[in-house]
């Protein structure tokens, strides 16, 4: 890094507007929801040409694994192949509603864009997504509102048998579930419906605990 900085200093005059620089980033992620937990987060700085997902397009197998089961290992492997800077599981487990976690990334020159993803529990295939956000080069703190996406890979039945867990244990059982199919493309999540019946009804989710509106998370990035 010292050598890079030296090189940068020598060429600053000519490259002021276009140079890429290694950056130290402090990334804070807050869960803004009432009763939704985030599975272990994936935080990554990567080249602008890399993207974890595209709205309107079918999810990759590794995005599906994250969105349906909280497994970010496949996405981390994908990012490794493009020499991205990757931090997984900064919260050492679930990120509970109303809580914040923080991590630091020292990014390589080429890794100019930031992405953050994690599954939302309890949902069928909902996830929070900061997608390919261009990190400013000017030092300072930047706050971004994060939306909930639906991976489109699994029908939103809202049956607890189709969902890994409700960490807050507000779910019911015995529902009929919604008669829907997987949408087939990544999009903004329409939200959980839920109901107030813990032993039947249409949904095993709880309407009072498991709903949300965007933004579901806040990411605060400090560029050192």
């Amino acid at each position: 890094m010292t050598r890079r900085l030296l090189t940068t200093a020598l060429t600053t005059a000519t490259l002021m507007s276009t140079t890429l620089m290694a950056q130290e980033l402090e990334v804070k992620i807050t869960n803004n929801t009432n009763g939704i937990y985030f599975t272990p987060l994936l935080v990554s700085a990567h080249p602008s040409t890399t993207t974890l997902f595209t709205s309107g397009v079918a999810a990759s197998a590794h995005l599906k694994a994250m969105a349906e089961g909280g497994d970010v290992s496949g996405l981390a492997t994908d990012l490794g192949t493009v020499n991205a800077d990757v931090m997984t599981n900064p919260a050492s487990g679930l990120l509970a509603p109303g809580t914040t976690t923080m991590t630091t990334l020292v990014t390589a020159d080429e890794n100019t864009n930031l992405s953050v993803v994690a599954m939302m529990l309890p949902t069928n295939d909902g996830f929070i997504g900061l997608n390919n956000w261009k990190v400013p080069t000017t030092p300072g703190t930047y706050t971004i509102n994060i939306n909930a996406y639906d991976a489109g890979t699994e029908a939103n039945t809202e049956l607890i048998a189709d969902i890994p867990a409700d960490p807050g244990t507000k779910n019911g059982t015995g529902a009929t579930g919604f008669n829907v199919t997987a949408e087939g493309y990544v999009h903004i999540h329409r939200g959980n419906v839920g109901d107030s019946d813990t032993s039947g009804g249409k949904s095993d989710l709880d309407a009072a605990s498991h709903r949300w509106l965007n933004p579901v998370a806040t990411v605060s990035v400090t560029v050192k």
Partner: peptide, 24 residues
């Protein structure tokens, strides 16, 4: 609201629900 959320006179179901943003 939709019929799936208890509005029995609604012709809509859970698939029609939306949250913002609805377009990019």
């Amino acid at each position: 609201v939709t019929a799936d959320d208890g509005l029995s006179s609604s012709a809509l179901s859970s698939i029609h629900r939306f949250d913002n943003p609805t377009a990019m």
